[in-house]
Design a protein around this nucleic acid. Structure first.
Length: 215
DNA sequence: TAGGCCATCTGGTCCT
DNA sequence: AGGACCAGATGGCCTA
């Protein structure tokens, strides 16, 4: 969608982040309202003729036939529509900000090298998936050692990956996510200079889980 | 300049 | 009725 020329996106974000749910005035003409609809939204005339799309048509008809709701002028309906849309946009923006905050928190507990390297969203999720699995395996191996079952512990190459992938295939550890997309963390991190994927946890010495072990 | 990533808007759907 | 969630579209920014 094309933002209104007079609306700098960054300014808009800042303003509306501070006021997640601003009381949208009916007189307020927002950039959203003035922006042209994207081609995919031009499904017939439904979306343009009534707030909320085609489903609102029945409500409108009911009102005209003497329903409970008071008939509103087109202008009033248009204003109400814009107001609702603006509030919905604010909520959606806020929701995505919360999601990104959670993602940042997740990044904060994941080991990366260099430390300030920022993982993308998909990398963060896949890396976290792998990291949790790595820690789980490490704990399992540690348990074996603790009870003197070290000799019974399967060798590195016998430990199955979370998805049952081929043993020792670190890249497959990121499945099922990696199966859906071409960008497995191992692969993607290898593609990105400076970022390195963790080594196979199955080969970590029990109890010696250190950051360096994942490099 | 192409491609990747991201933020944002938007309409649809489901739920309370 | 209104909010949450979702997916598609779009444009900006950045990097190779």
């Amino acid at each position: 969608m094309t933002p209104h020329p007079s609306c700098a996106p960054a300014v808009q974000v800042t303003h509306e982040t501070e006021q997640p749910f601003p009381g949208a005035s009916d007189d307020e003409v927002t950039c959203v309202a003035s922006a042209p609809p994207s081609p995919t939204r031009l499904q017939g005339n439904c979306a343009e003729t009534e707030g909320g799309g085609c489903r609102g048509s029945s409500r409108k008809l009911r009102a005209r036939r003497g329903g409970r709701s008071r008939p509103k002028s087109e202008l009033a309906l248009s204003k109400q529509r814009r107001s609702r849309r603006k509030k919905a946009n604010d909520r959606e923006r806020n929701r995505m900000h919360n999601l990104n905050s959670a993602l940042d928190a997740l990044r904060g507990v994941l080991p990366t090298f260099p430390d300030d390297a920022k993982l993308t969203k998909i990398e963060t999720l896949r890396f976290a998936h792998n990291y949790i699995w790595a820690l789980t395996q490490t704990l399992r191996i540690a348990d074996h050692s603790l009870y003197g079952l070290e000799s019974l512990a399967p060798p590195c190459e016998e430990l199955a990956s979370p998805d049952g992938g081929s043993p020792g295939d670190w890249g497959s550890l990121y499945s099922p996510v990696s199966q859906a997309g071409s960008l497995s963390p191992a692969a993607s991190l290898e593609e990105r200079p400076g970022l390195q994927a963790p080594a196979s946890p199955a080969c970590l010495h029990p109890g010696a889980l250190a950051f360096s072990d994942f490099l």
